[in-house]
């Protein structure tokens, strides 16, 4: 009798079926299940509610839940597709799918553009680029003179802003990345190819479910 209900597994709010997520991403079903193990770990590190909060994301990235970072904030916001302040499992898998080595390059290019379009105006503005350079320097304890920063930003802008309107649009970005492919190197996580090796405990969970 009780057996029917014993297979009830506690799922996070926002949990989605691995088969569905696998059909929409480069992951296989077992890789999505492995990602669920990672997700459970990340989403219970501070607040045990099955959702990844900003502090938990920061803790995973920096081993410090209070360490704020402009880029980590942007990544978090892009993963949080529903904009409700937390990352749900489906959002986590779909977003990480973009970082899969087999994901379309166009998706990676578009994601990087959104990341750098800080104020979501549809363009990367000169001010935004400068703000990001300053944030990086600050994070790395590097000091460059105002002149050098201006030179770096201007030079990059001159190369990327081909129509010279003072902002980089998605087409210009695409073109710029095709000339400088290393710019989206960080949009690929080789780890994602071996995710079932990295988080093998899903096998155990699957067996528990199947045993019913």
């Amino acid at each position: 009798m009780g057996c029917v209900y014993s297979k009830k597994v506690r799922r996070s709010p926002g949990y989605e079926e691995p088969a569905l997520l696998a059909s929409e991403t480069p992951f296989t079903v077992s890789e999505v299940e492995a990602l669920y193990e990672l997700f459970k770990k990340l989403s219970s590190s501070i607040i045990n509610d099955g959702l990844i909060h900003k502090e938990e994301f920061q803790l995973a990235l920096f081993k410090n839940s209070n360490r704020r970072n402009l880029f980590a904030d942007r990544v978090f916001d892009l993963f949080d597709v529903k904009r409700n302040g937390v990352i749900e499992f489906g959002e986590f898998v779909r977003s990480l799918g973009i970082f899969h080595p087999n994901a379309p390059i166009a998706d990676k290019v578009a994601f990087a553009f959104k990341l750098y379009d800080l104020r979501q105006t549809g363009y990367i503005e000169r001010e935004e680029l400068k703000e990001m350079v300053l944030a990086l320097l600050n994070e790395s304890d590097l000091t460059l003179s105002e002149d050098v920063v201006e030179t770096i930003v201007n030079k990059t802008f001159n190369e990327a802003d081909s129509n010279g309107d003072g902002r980089i649009d998605p087409e210009e970005w695409k073109e710029f990345v095709s000339r400088n492919p290393s710019l989206i190197k960080n949009m690929t996580l080789p780890y994602l190819k071996d995710i079932t090796i990295a988080f093998p405990s899903f096998v155990l969970n699957s067996e528990v479910e199947d045993a019913d």
Binding site: N69, L70, T156, S182, N186
Partner: peptide
């Protein structure tokens, strides 16, 4: 030679963009 650096290349080295740390146990 920072002057010849591409700003986006520089930015991409941010620790906040290094998501591989999410997979560290």
């Amino acid at each position: 030679r920072p002057v010849t650096m591409n700003a986006f290349e520089l930015i991409s080295t941010s620790q906040g963009l290094n998501l591989s740390t999410l997979f560290e146990k």
